[in-house]
Design a protein around this nucleic acid. Structure first.
Lengths: 343, 343
DNA sequence: TTGAAAGCGATACCAT
DNA sequence: ATGGTATCGCTTTCAA
């Protein structure tokens, strides 16, 4: 493959019959350039197909126009959606995204950040993970004067600039919705007790129940892996033991689907005492969803969605602020969830 | 925020009492450096927390260590998974990913590529989309001597270096599986007739049927939006009109889920003539899946999965080849699908 | 309004 | 085995 000689501002300057300084001024729109000269330079740029070398710009001290993103795992719908939103918003600002997957690993996170910095990013966003090595990472970034932003599903970092979903509000929203629909006995299904997100949501659920003078029964809060099979079994057991439960709040969409299958099966089997009763009574399902609204499963379920894409947009906006005028005060931005009532 | 002065090789050289050339040689492991000097330099690097500026390297003519990725839409599970795999494999090679979302838009694609090139990427991968502007894009990349690789869900580019899933084989695989399980009358549900992926899959399905001497009936191939509701209705209509059908092949997981609901509902409603018959006969479902195996829905369905992550890995490997020794011959690499029999 | 020249950080050739 | 230095493409004073 023959590599055409790269076009530089020198070539442009030559073609336009001006100096490189002039070309640079035209490019950046600074300095007062006569209209005629501007025209000629732009023509030359057009004709030669010149594209400005950002690395040289950045080396000289300018911005690279690149934001680094460290994401725990891109294949998770939540982070994929967040990343898509972030990339979208950045591109609208003529910036780009540098992507790394840092996993949960601390040492790996440091290497990732180092790489990002060595590439001259204007800022770094850490989405999920890297909670433990927070201090080291922040020192690294601070030493380079690069703004660091966090996006997280739960609020484990109090003193950092962070954007996150409002898990508590989400739980309150959906719990209140169920109550308004007449449910008095609402159970919880799914998630591991070690999950911070779950803890926050449970807080909102619990608070709302008490606020409405309804019973909060810890036997009605069931831990469960995110597996349809396990959820289906778990809801069966739950309802058999507690036949008065009229609504179940599911930790995520997998749980919701499993729960629904569980209800179907229970109803279908029929004639087994308690089993058919709750189907006939139409136990209501509600669930938290990780996916964008358009991708919600078509189940008879009320969803609460965390607007991951919106979080991405917000991150882009906040990063722009940080880059332009570094208001040092760490700040928390909390993005509310939306309710999608059962259709 | 106080920005610590950036550490350069000059600082390292000073600290180690050697020249910058020596530091550079130690960094790149070229030239013969005495062990003692090497030690001293590395100590200084460690002590000062020096990180090499890749922009300067790249400006001087070295590699940037960055691969550009233009992806149609990151929030689609297939591309998210592909991107995750690619990023994973690249990081193992000490390279990074530059991400852009180019949508389907031609002009936008050109701008994306331009930006990538201006950032000094060592190579570019286009995943989905940008089919129409192929020629322009390739010229742009070629002019800069940057290798261009395609990843696509269907084979619309014959003369390019491309990696893609084997849609035909996938369809053959699953169709054959159904036949071996004793199904003779297999219908197709889902997808739009304008979809290239679907066309290729239909080809495999059709070929396999004929190969086994089974009837291929175009009335049994149903177009359908990827919506659970529509799929549920469509399968109902299909089976009512063609009660002899014993298996249905679904274009994706949404269709599969809808189809399954359709079967459930049909079975449940009972007593409506044809409606109950097909439920009792246990119509088998099989489906193509976009998601990784671990994320498959827990349905009584036989899945064929396109290994998106593997495609990502393969892309990384091929890109490495292209960067190192540019064997110009465009080459197609076709990644086979895997069967996940109904559990 | 425009041009000349210094310098950003790293590399590699040419000396020593 | 090391050191000096021109160079990559661009921005930015300082002069003209």
């Amino acid at each position: 493959m023959t590599v055409a000689k790269k076009i530089t501002i020198n070539d442009v300057a030559l073609a336009a019959g001006v100096s490189v300084s002039t070309v640079s001024l035209v490019l950046s729109g600074k300095g007062r350039i006569s209209h005629a000269t501007g025209e000629r330079v732009n023509d030359a740029i057009e004709k030669l197909g010149f594209v400005r070398n950002r690395q040289a710009v950045s080396l000289r001290g300018g911005q690279s126009g690149v934001i680094g993103l460290m994401v725990r795992d891109l294949s998770s719908p939540f982070y994929a959606e967040l990343t898509a939103g972030l990339s979208e918003a950045l591109e609208a600002q003529d910036r780009m995204l540098f992507l790394t997957q840092c996993g949960g690993d601390g040492a790996r996170s440091e290497r990732c950040l180092s790489t990002l910095l060595s590439q001259g990013v204007d800022g770094v966003i850490i989405a999920g993970g890297a909670a433990d090595t927070g201090a080291t990472l922040r020192e690294l970034a601070a030493a380079r004067g690069v703004p660091l932003l966090y996006a997280s599903r739960a609020s484990y970092l109090d003193d950092a600039d962070i954007i996150r979903p409002d898990n508590m509000q989400a739980a309150q929203l959906v719990t209140e919705h169920l109550i308004r629909r007449g449910h008095q006995r609402i159970a919880w299904l799914g998630g591991r007790s070690s999950s911070l997100t779950r803890a926050e949501r449970l807080g909102g659920y619990c608070a709302t129940l008490l606020q409405y003078g309804l019973p909060f029964n810890s036997d009605w809060v069931i831990e469960c892996e995110s597996s349809q099979k396990q959820a289906a079994e778990a809801i069966g057991t739950l309802l058999r033991r507690n036949p008065t439960i009229s609504a179940v709040l599911c930790h995520n969409n997998t749980i919701a689907m499993g729960a629904w299958f569980g209800l179907m099966r229970g109803g279908r089997q029929g004639g087994e005492g308690g089993m058919e009763s709750y189907y006939d009574r139409q136990v209501a399902l509600a669930a938290f969803a990780d996916v964008p609204e358009a991708a919600l499963d078509d189940l008879p379920v009320t969803w609460v969605t965390t607007p991951a894409r919106e979080i991405g947009h917000t991150l882009a906006g906040r990063m722009l602020q940080r880059i332009n005028d570094d208001e040092g005060a760490p700040r928390q931005q909390i993005i509310p969830a939306r309710l999608v009532p059962q259709r």
